[in-house]
Amino acid sequence: MIDTDFFNQLNRFSLMVRKRVSSVYAGSRRSVLQGKGIEIVGYREYMPGDDIRTIDWRVYGRTDKLYIRKFEEEKNVTTHILLDSSKSMDFSSNGITKFDYAAMLACGFGYLVTRENEKFAISTFGENIDINPPKRGRGFLLHTIDKLNQIQLDGKTRFDHCTMQYEKMIRSKSIVIVISDFLTDLDSIRAGLYRLSANDLIIISVFDPAEYNLTIGGDVKLYDMETGEVRKTYISPKLKEEYRTLLDNHFGGIRETCMHIGADFLSFGTDVPIFDAFFEAVKAR
């Protein structure tokens, strides 16, 4: 169940857009990039080829030199949140499932976007993606929360396949937030991330603390939550060590891809307070 009490704590946060955006609609989101707009952020000397409409003639009158005005680019951005709803997200060792935690993060981002009167969409994906078109408004947010509370987690994760489907509906440069446990083939994850790299991309990995710190040992019967496969094995200290290394390598590979495409990569255990997770996510930008 998604707990929305934390929304009040998010009022002090604002999601900053990093990429140049182009839209016919004007929004109020702050940008770190300069371009066409109204607010002047500085001057520079005129260079041949610059738009002569940007020359500040009053400065020319005082200095006899041609200076052009630099404006903060105005922006209007849609936030696409892709939320993993595969069966592996249904795992919990401390009361809150990975999906619940991920959904709270997704809704939190939706809340921040709604406050800025921007459009957002939360689409869940597993073997296929359930695409929701982006919309504005608190009503849409509450509808989305209600929908997420009803969702049945099922199946495996086909990340590449799902991102391919979703990419078609991103019409302009947007913020894309992917929240998943990323327990799927690294090549598939890489392909999906490259596909979304044209956007301002935030990748959030969610894990359960029990997945990182294995406390079990000896003979065990392992159940695959996504496929139902059963496997008997012996968990030795050496296997635990190898498991930790392989897990680190897997997420290291995702982090490396994110660095390569300029995406933010964040990783949260479900034992991290949701406010701290948001603080970390917003601080990173």
Binding site: F91, D181, Y212, I216, D219, Y223, E242, L246, H250
Partner: peptide, 20 residues
């Protein structure tokens, strides 16, 4: 007569073992 293996559902463990 040794004890039966415990039933464990840890998605990441299964995923890594499959990968291996």
């Amino acid at each position: 007569i040794k004890p039966k293996p415990r039933d464990i559902k840890i998605p990441s463990l299964m995923f890594i073992l499959d990968m291996e």
